[in-house]
Design a protein around this nucleic acid. Structure first.
Lengths: 209, 209
DNA sequence: CTTTACAAGGGGAAAATTCCCCTTTTTAAG
DNA sequence: CTTAAAAAGGGGAATTTTCCCCTTGTAAAG
């Protein structure tokens, strides 16, 4: 009896190719190939066969992987979902895992490991590649470097063309306090200029533009 | 007689899946699957069968797609190469085409169109998807707003923690000249601070981080 | 109780950025 | 030929950012 797989990825060439590969694996068959989270919601809302595993990309238009995981958490919290993506950014990995994702696969995984990952999830419920395990291991450490509420507020304003004086006005603070926050961010981010802070914030997706 | 394809992509799951799909197409067969430009150079330097088409990803470690195209231009200028990538950044598209790439495929192409693209390249030499054709059509317009060579050089250095004085040293210019360039960028980008310039450059993917 | 973290703030000044007024030379397009 | 663009650069100064030295008060944890 075949394990049923649903593939959700907007890169059609990839998803169709992957369908071929999965169908060539003994014990696995692809139920359908969907292009985004919205199509998946529609699929679940119709009386179609539910899959054993959902392979879910993250970067998709209309409804992305994170949003889709949020929907699963609320509607089908036990559905086994494996992220399958190029995104190896820590924040994304942690977020997906917290939302109940059973594993996180990068697209450079080889087909044997891919098959092993699916089998592991079906048997024990979770699969972590070495890279992802590293991220989880170090994520507790990283938490120590998180920003305070006020710092984060300041950081968002720093990533704009406002002068510090203007930022002080917006936050109802003295320019001297702003200078204090600037100093705190410099220390935390090992930055030596506002530009450095901005580059860090955007690069690490603390702030989006 | 089958058309011979070489797949160059570091995402193994994708490339192995794609191999399966291509091999399932009548008249096509995959010679080999390589992980980066360096592996491809090694392949060409050995006495192996040359492919009819190379499917080449851009973002790869060790030797990327651009570098690989440069190698082809110098060593096998007539080799038919199709870019196959997620990168829909205009600068990248133009660069690849200028280096002799016969077509530029995005990974959200469907398998039928994919097959048609390969057939078109084999027959007439070139294939452009609608999206890429748009880029080419508008790239002449855009050139009017493009940065000069020196401005671009400066812009990349601005998106760093170097002081203008340091940038002047790196570009072998006077700080007054740097100030001139700063002014030029401010005018072109309607910016009023270095932070504004940095935000624009990153947002519009003129500079990547 | 002490210590730490967070929030808010000060004095003073050096360094960096921005601004405002220009210049000359070379090259390419009309 | 003229004009515009690109490249390189200058004097001078105001504004902003960064730096270095601190402070107090509150809340939470040990």
């Amino acid at each position: 009896m075949s394990e049923k797989i649903l593939v959700v990825d907007d890169h059609i060439l990839f998803s169709q190719s992957l369908k071929g590969l999965i169908n060539s694996l003994q014990d696995f068959e692809v139920l359908d190939v969907l292009k985004n989270g919205q199509e998946l919601v529609t699929y679940y809302e119709s009386n179609k066969i539910k899959p054993d595993i959902v392979l879910l990309d993250i970067r998709m238009p209309v409804m992305d992987g994170i949003e889709t995981m949020e929907w699963f958490k609320e509607n089908f919290p036990d559905q086994k979902v494996l992220a399958l993506t190029m995104e190896h950014e820590e924040e994304t990995i942690i977020k997906m895992l917290k939302l109940g994702c059973r594993g996180y696969l990068l697209k450079d995984i080889d087909p044997d490991e891919f098959r092993y990952a699916m089998e592991t999830v079906l048997q024990s419920g979770y699969y972590y590649s070495n890279e992802v395990a590293e991220v989880i291991l170090h994520s507790e450490d990283k938490r120590k470097d998180q920003f305070t509420k006020r710092e984060l507020e300041f950081l968002h304003l720093v990533c704009s063309e406002r002068t510090y004086k203007e930022i002080a006005g917006e936050m109802n603070l003295s320019p001297k306090t702003i200078d204090g926050y600037r100093e705190q961010l410099f220390a935390k981010l090992n930055a030596k200029s506002r530009t450095g802070v901005v580059l860090y914030a955007i690069k690490n997706k603390v702030v989006s533009i």
